[in-house]
Amino acid sequence: MKTWLRDLPKVELHLHIEGSLEPELMFTLAERNGVSLPYATVDEARAAYDFKDLQSFLDLYYQGMGVLHTEQDFFDLAMDYFSRAAAEGVVHVELSFDPQAHMSRGVALSVPFAGLERAMREAENRWDMTSALIMSFLRDRSADEAMAVLEQAAPYHAQIAAVGLDSAELGNPPSKFAAVFERAKALGLPRVAHAGEEGPATYILEALDVLDVCRIDHGVACLQDEALVARLRDVQMPLTVCPLSNVRLKVVETMTAHPLPAMLDKGLKVTINSDDPAYFGGGVLDNFIACADAFDWDRETFKALAANAIDVAFMPEPRRAELQQRLASG
């Protein structure tokens, strides 16, 4: 089954590129840029990847991304991820990145755009791996700041597949960013948002009704509200679920306790993703394997999950048809 899952053409919709920073590369970039790390060794850094909740992860996450300074750093970060993803059967990936986390450190907005775009072109040339870029806003910072970033990113709007909303969910409801997402809609930019990870089902409703999103990132809290479940099912709203992340951040205690089977039973349009693979136990393939081990799903279930991701990805229609055909014939 593991070999078959590796060969299955997989699409990654929920990937924070900063969260793909492996400790080995972190140390390399820290040395390159003269950044002091609080760890003496790679093993010591990995030992710190034991989180009690989302906030404890975010504290380490932002500390780690402090090694990213130059266009080359972002290129190397993305290529490191792309090389692993290609070996795991990923054929398309949508990279979220957090410009505010870099701009607040004095890194110009142009730097991540240039490095990530160059890596995306290289990955397509090298591995036939297509990709899309999602510019995410940090919900624990002000809506005014997010609006300013959206406007400052005007030269790059054509390069953005969507805008997103991520970071600390509790106490930062989607409605806080209503004006920002209304502006993004007016600019013709698709919108996605994290909702219902640590936050309640009402945050999912706000993401739908206030932010007018086309995808919900995470969304596992939807099961708290049967009417919401019915609505999500009826419109086939995509949910980018990240099972290993949910376990590592204590959203659920164990994989076997994860609500994924119940979500599938209720007819929800679920996709499987990695979130922050360097911190949460691996990439998309590892998440597929963890689901196979926990739920004993058959091949048709995994093909349906892979098809869901292809159906809703930000990609040209010819590429979508190509991947759907590849999946169907596999």
Rank of each mutant, 00 (worst) to 15 (best):
P155N: 14
P155G: 09
Y156N: 12
Y156L: 11
H157M: 06
H157G: 01
A158E: 15
A158P: 09
A158L: 14
A158S: 15
A158I: 13
A158Q: 13
A158N: 13
A158T: 15
A158V: 15
A158F: 06
Q159E: 14
Q159I: 14
I160N: 01
I160E: 01
I160S: 01
I160A: 04
I160H: 00
I160R: 00
A161N: 04
A161I: 06
A161D: 07
A161F: 08
A161Y: 08
A162F: 04
A162V: 02
V163A: 03
V163I: 15
G164H: 14
G164C: 11
G164S: 11
G164V: 09
L165Y: 01
L165T: 00
D166W: 04
D166I: 02
S167Q: 06
S167T: 11
S167H: 04
S167P: 06
A168L: 13
A168H: 12
A168D: 13
E169Q: 05
L170N: 08
L170R: 15
G171E: 12
N172Y: 10
N172I: 06
P173Y: 05
P174T: 07
K176T: 07
K176F: 03
F177P: 00
F177M: 09
F177D: 03
A178R: 06
A178P: 06
A179G: 03
A179S: 12
A179K: 13
A179C: 04
A179M: 05
A179D: 15
A179E: 14
A179W: 06
A179F: 07
V180P: 06
V180D: 12
V180M: 07
V180S: 00
F181K: 01
F181W: 05
F181A: 04
F181P: 10
E182L: 05
E182V: 00
E182I: 02
R183Y: 05
R183A: 09
R183C: 07
R183F: 10
K185A: 15
K185H: 14
K185S: 12
K185D: 14
A186S: 15
A186G: 11
A186N: 07
L187V: 03
L187P: 05
L187W: 10
L187D: 00
G188D: 08
G188F: 09
L189V: 04
P190V: 08
P190C: 05
P190E: 08
P190D: 12
P190Q: 09
P190K: 09
P190W: 04
